[in-house]
């Protein structure tokens, strides 16, 4: 395993100068503590049972403890040998990808593919800085038509094609 620690250990001066930025591993350890802690809290009510009668809580709690332990270990390792600094977190891409999926989830039942696909494409467009909106409009239209034809009619999935009441399955019946 090539280790990247050596370089950052060697230039200690720089490390100290930027010491207000936490190391990646320190934050990673904290994140594990938070995740493990949350799982422990959520599984608090589950009985762990015994070896002869393992309860529903044994695995979730055991694993959550393991995650907390790994979090502590990673933080300790980081103290003994500080790793690289935390990189810049760009929120724009994940936030808009999340928004696109969320919008799709909320609109697919009431509006069908006809509404959900263009909305999702539009929101996903915001995830990138180099989006060209003319292209996105064409893409949204093309994808909507393609998805409706392929998933709605050719494969007759039970995914809604248009707003409820839209005579989707009448067409689907025709295709059968």
């Amino acid at each position: 395993m090539p280790n990247k620690d050596t370089s950052s250990v060697s230039d200690v001066g720089e490390t100290e100068a930027k010491s207000w930025v936490p190391t990646q591993d320190f934050v990673a350890g904290i994140a594990l503590l938070a995740l493990g802690g949350f799982a422990l809290y959520q599984s608090a009510g589950l009985p762990t049972g015994s070896l002869s009668a393992v309860g529903p809580g044994l695995l979730p709690r055991g694993l959550a403890f393991g995650i907390v332990f790994m979090g502590v270990l990673i933080i300790l390792l980081d103290f003994t040998r500080p790793g690289e600094r935390l990189g810049i977190v760009h929120l724009r891409p994940p936030v808009f990808i999340f928004a696109a999926l969320m919008a799709f989830a909320l609109t697919i039942k009431p509006l069908g593919l006809l509404g959900a696909v263009p909305i999702a494409v539009g929101l996903a467009g915001f995830a990138s800085t180099e989006t060209q909106w003319r292209e996105i409009v064409v893409l949204a239209a093309a994808l909507t038509v393609a998805c409706i034809v392929v998933f709605g009619y050719l494969l007759t999935l039970s995914i809604p094609v248009g707003p409820s009441g839209w005579p989707v399955a009448a067409f689907a019946a025709f295709w059968k």
Partner: peptide, 8 residues
Amino acid sequence: PSIVVFCA
């Protein structure tokens, strides 16, 4: 955006 839609 196409990947996002197909994933959805």
